[in-house]
Amino acid sequence: MSSAGGQRPAANRMTLQTFKARLGGASKGFKLLKKKRDALKSRFQALLKDIVDTKLKVGESLKDGAFALAKAHYASSGDDIASSIVERAKKPSVTTKMYPDNVAGVSIPVFKVLRNASQEAIAHTMGVGSGGAVLNATRDTYLKAVECIVQLASLQTAFHTLDEEIKMTSRRVNALEYVLIPRIEDIIHYITQEMDEQAREEFFRVKKVVEKKKVKLAKEKEQAEKNEAAIDAPSILQKKDADIVF
């Protein structure tokens, strides 16, 4: 009797029924949550490998980008392209779209790159004087890098969300398995025990009553017999008296 907290429910058939129903509900919930946790975990494991791979890819693409940028610097021969690019930034031509994805009932945000061609046109005019083609090549390299990065961002957010969700689900599963279900089982055990005890008491009581009744009946019978015997006692009137002649 571990953790019923002192107060016990009334031991009768009705409470037993409610607790049995609760036990059924709890074990069903436990099974479902366990399934959910396993589904999340399998997805999580698949994510890990993807994250490492994409991380490597991002590193590579940024390295390519840095190299391309160095080439662009060289091609533009002295023009400070960096500051002119920073100055030109006004409206993004690359934006992301976020939409939810569903994994075992958990909504996970997924990012997607959106490109706006009309905004890109502004960038095309840059570096027309010198090294425009190289600059465009650099732009493409960086666009690829951005795509990789956005993919990595999706994976990373999914990783975070799943991590939290798995923690939460495991906590629930463990709470059900080690606290709630044992507690309900405990109470059911207590109630059945108590009801058995009551039944035994009742049986014993009935037995006692019957015994007493038997004794009483026996006594009454004896008394009655005695009475009858008393009645049967020969009356003096019926006795033959030798002295009476007629």
């Binding site: 940024l62 940028l69 690019i85 930034a89 993004p92 732009r139 390299t141 890098a145 951005v146």
Partner: peptide, 16 residues
């Protein structure tokens, strides 16, 4: 750093 920002802005993520 400046180079990373320049590259990314070149790709078109800059917003002011």
């Amino acid at each position: 750093d400046e180079d990373t920002v320049t590259g990314m802005l070149l790709a078109g993520i800059g917003h002011v």
